[in-house]
Design a protein around this nucleic acid. Structure first.
Lengths: 356, 356
DNA sequence: TTGTAAGCGTTATCAC
DNA sequence: GTGATAACGCTTACAA
């Protein structure tokens, strides 16, 4: 593997001629040029049906001729909404969020909304800041990941009257509108199948659970399954690490060098699982003959990993799309949407096999 | 592989109490409560240093007590800028864009800007629409991918006075500020090495070149290398397909069933390459002994593919970060930034081997 | 169907 | 340092 340091070359100054930014045409200009009132021009833009065809045609021609486009700030100020919706996610580098976000944006866009994005890097403090930033930037509504955050944030959003939807989690007891899935139940279902296959010594390589309720729920799901099946808690080796392929690899190595190594290694997400898979290959450990590896999320990576990864399928796109639809409805009706539970379910590929 | 249809359950109406949205406190309210003028409150918010400490403390206390936060639209209207920057990309589902976008947003966020995102789904018509949408939503500046688009779009942006930076491409002759890399040169460098290894019969599985100048450039890069090395054009089998693992697999199958099958298959991106790799495995074709496969982008997938994929490394994050920095500087100084070329270079892993 | 005119909540320019 | 006050460009009753 050959890698050279990125070289940067600077080229000469570009010559871009920007418009005379002092004088974009205004509604008034259009009205004057078309010989109508500003109200009529405004109507042509917002409620064309209310304007006589002849007048409308005249105004539209003037708009085109002058290259007029409405001033955003003035519009927001007068109409008291931005048609902009914010999304705050841990990071777009995680494919699950990128995928969900794309679907969220597609749906918003189809309904005339624009999406503002902020990311937290999985930091709770950061999230609080980003919530304020997006609200200050005029987000009419917000999408958040998971339920767990300071109550002050919820209070702030309620005080500002910002409709907010929770995704990636499901907890009807919270009383907050959400579109998500039950992380604990999904992982529990998978763990039951694994235990039924004869696995008794288990490990979980988890994302950090401190500020990530989804990771915690998945952990609890495995514990629940173990309890159901009568396995003692000690039979689960719990390893917490940060997000990344390398991190998954290191944690896997650690798990396998335990005094009582697991025959099945659960991973909190597919990226960690793929890291574990690579480490197994590098260590000459055969998957699934020597050890089973189980992921979570079912991203593209899972299908093309070798062997293809057994994982829990999460309907990321559907979640993003429905979250957008819910917010759009909320903004329109003024009434909070119902909470929606989506199903996440095991997908059996080739990294899980019965124990002996 | 077991998959069940996603089940959706609807739960009871959530009871969210939204604030009396008719009465958020305004600057005036704060001024009245603190016993100062609106101008002073505005200064406390925007230029705290200009206000006497005692006054400032009093005003800040009032702001906190009333839970005041500035109205976005009014602010935009008066200040004539939104501190919002738009990014228009093909899709976030492509990891290269997700990665670049994350870096772009991080840098923006660190400087007090917020990011608006729109996506085109690789459609030129869509892009024109999104440009207008983001400008209408008050984007102060824009990031675009690649140079190729209707001149009308550039004219519109110039007329509106919207600083715009081009990324993912490098063409100093365009005269437009950009932060990118030379797609043709990067692919040419890789192709030269491949040809030097003795490969004579080549194939390229390319993304669609019609509305994607990066894909076209990569194609031209291979052609240039072939010409340098004296290989006739006919020795390159060109297959164009859309983005996706499955698409790569299908195209690979097609390439290998040609009357004169290639010994090296270039792919326009890593996702296509991973699809090709999977198809090779499924067909019992050994990589790189039977055929070499070369990707482009160096996303995570490339490292964990089996065998690890030889590809062209693209500094996506650096590109996003520098693009943000360039726009921020442009907005601040009012002068367009210099064009920056980043280096994309071959990364030799395990899917490329000398021909016999 | 169209026009008039009153805000909308800031920022910024003046005086003081 | 601080206070009046005039924009800023649009939407939306209400009137005609």
């Amino acid at each position: 593997m050959t890698e050279v340091a990125g070289r940067i070359e600077i080229y000469g100054q570009c010559e871009i001629v920007m418009a005379n930014t002092t004088s974009l045409p205004t509604l008034q200009d259009v009205a004057a040029a078309a010989g109508v009132s500003t109200a009529t021009v405004s109507r042509v833009i917002n409620f064309p049906a209310q304007v006589a065809p002849a007048t409308r045609a005249k105004v539209e021609a003037t708009i085109a001729q002058l290259g007029y486009s409405p001033h955003f700030g003035a519009r927001v100020m007068a109409a008291r909404r931005t048609n902009t919706v914010g999304a705050i996610i841990p990071t777009m580098e995680n494919a699950v969020f990128a995928r969900g976000l794309q679907a969220f944006q597609d749906e918003l866009s189809a309904h005339g909304y624009t999406m503002l994005v902020a990311s937290t890097g999985y930091s709770a403090a950061n999230e609080a800041e980003q919530v304020k930033a997006l609200v200050a930037r005029g987000a009419d509504a917000l999408l958040l990941i998971g339920h767990k955050r300071d109550q002050a944030i919820y209070d702030f959003l309620a005080a500002q009257g910002i409709p907010t939807i929770i995704t990636w989690a499901f907890d009807p007891s919270s009383g907050r509108p959400s579109v998500g899935f039950d992380n604990a139940a999904a992982m529990r279902d998978m763990a039951r199948q694994v235990i039924d296959m004869g696995h008794r010594q288990l490990a979980l390589i988890s994302a950090e659970t401190a500020s990530n309720d989804r990771a915690m729920e998945r952990y609890l799901g495995i514990q629940a399954a173990m309890q159901d099946k009568g396995l003692p808690e000690e039979n689960l080796l719990f390893i917490e690490t940060s997000y990344g392929i390398e991190e998954g690899a290191i944690a896997f190595k650690q798990a396998m060098s335990a005094s009582n190594p697991p025959s099945a290694v659960f991973c909190g997400n597919d990226v960690l699982a793929v890291g574990a898979l690579r480490q197994a290959r590098d260590s000459g450990i055969h998957v699934p003959d020597d050890v089973s590896i189980i992921g979570f999320d079912d991203i593209e990576l899972a299908q093309v990993a070798y062997p293809p990864l057994t994982t829990v399928h999460v309907p990321h796109r559907e979640m993003g799309r429905l979250a957008a639809a819910a917010l759009i409805g909320w903004l329109k009706d003024g009434t909070p949407p119902n909470t929606v539970e989506l199903l996440a379910y095991p997908v059996m590929r080739s990294t899980l096999a019965p124990k002996d």
